[in-house]
């Protein structure tokens, strides 16, 4: 595009730095900008919330149970009179932390396997791709439930109830979602490793590790960032699903999914109890997905806007 427009005198704009160019493309996606803003508010709310909203998450007040939103309890109370806003702030920290950590796990495994498969020309690459396809056809949620069922008690003893489940959920969600990243990285590697600049590096005597780390990986990072962003949303959904099925964090840890699980039997008398945490999950997920969409516009060099 730029090469074409330079000919016209009015379009003589100065060259932007890559980051500025990325931002310029990103900011054209209006919903993505709004989403980034929303997500920022959500993150600030769960991080700063406990310092401002000082009601304890387990403060029981049966008399004030099942109340709708009011000034004292902006999001209402549950059947035991616990403040839903305070519980959501606490749960939001866990849900968002699980999403981020699981994404890091899946991006790490995916990049490693994709890079190995992309660089090797022999049986290793084929084997790794077969493994990736095998993992893609595993039924994720049943397997997730099975793993948590089998390993829950063992990890609980080692890391304590909350820490053990956190590690387990992060590893299992991350360990079952690396396949798209691996395929993307492999596809990128297969094309980039044949480019002239990599050949030049090879001719200068760069070791395979240096070729990968300094030359290939930085050029393959765009799609990985996009996939990683979407992975955060998927991990948040996965964690909430587990909690919603009663198999996630321990019952006294109010993650957003757990709040919904507790609320689902009181829909007729306390709909607010389900609507606020459900809405929070939805806003987080939709915002992250839109950010991913905006990043696709911004980072995917093949796409001409």
């Amino acid at each position: 595009m730029a090469g074409l427009t330079l000919a016209s005198p009015s379009a003589e704009r100065r060259a932007y730095s890559p980051w500025r160019e990325t931002w310029r493309r990103y900011s054209r996606h209006r919903l993505a900008v709004i989403s980034a803003f929303l997500l920022l508010i959500l993150v600030l709310a769960v991080v700063m919330g406990p310092f401002i909203w000082r009601i304890k998450i387990n403060e029981i007040d049966i008399v004030a149970g099942m109340q709708g939103p009011s000034l004292a309890h902006p999001f209402g109370t549950d059947d035991l009179g616990q403040d839903i806003l305070a519980r959501m702030i606490y749960g939001g920290r866990i849900s968002l932390a699980v999403g981020l950590a699981a994404m890091l796990v899946s991006v790490f495994i995916g990049t490693l396997i994709g890079a190995l498969a992309g660089m090797s020309r022999g049986a290793l690459g084929h084997g790794l791709m077969w493994l990736t396809d095998l993992f893609l056809s595993l039924p994720q949620l049943p397997l997730l439930l099975l793993l948590i069922y089998l390993f829950r008690d063992g990890l609980k003893q080692v890391f304590g109830p909350e820490g053990g489940i956190f590690i387990l959920i992060v590893l299992v969600i991350g360990g079952l979602r690396w396949m798209p990243v691996a395929r993307l990285v492999r596809a990128q590697f297969l094309s980039i490793r044949e480019k002239e600049f990599v050949e030049a590096a090879r001719a200068l005597g760069a070791s395979p590790v240096r070729q990968v780390v300094r030359h290939i990986l930085p050029n393959a990072v765009g799609p990985v960032i996009i996939a990683g962003t979407i992975d955060v949303a998927a991990a948040i959904i996965a964690e909430s699903t587990l909690s919603f099925l009663g198999l996630g964090f321990p019952p006294d840890t109010p993650t957003w999914g757990r709040l919904l699980y507790d609320a689902k039997d009181f829909l007729d008398i306390g709909p607010h109890w389900a609507l606020f945490p459900g809405g929070a999950i939805f806003i987080a997920v939709v915002a992250i997905n839109f950010i991913g969409d905006g990043l696709r516009d911004a980072l995917d060099a093949r796409r001409v806007i």
Binding site: S240, T241, L260, L267, P271, A274, V286, N289
Partner: peptide, 24 residues
């Protein structure tokens, strides 16, 4: 936009919304 919203809504939340609207 609707498609985006649709696959960002987790099934457990849509299920609860449906029950809330159509049953309760």
């Amino acid at each position: 936009t609707l498609a985006f919203v649709g696959f960002s809504l987790p099934t457990f939340f849509t299920g609860i919304l449906f029950i809330l609207i159509f049953s309760v």
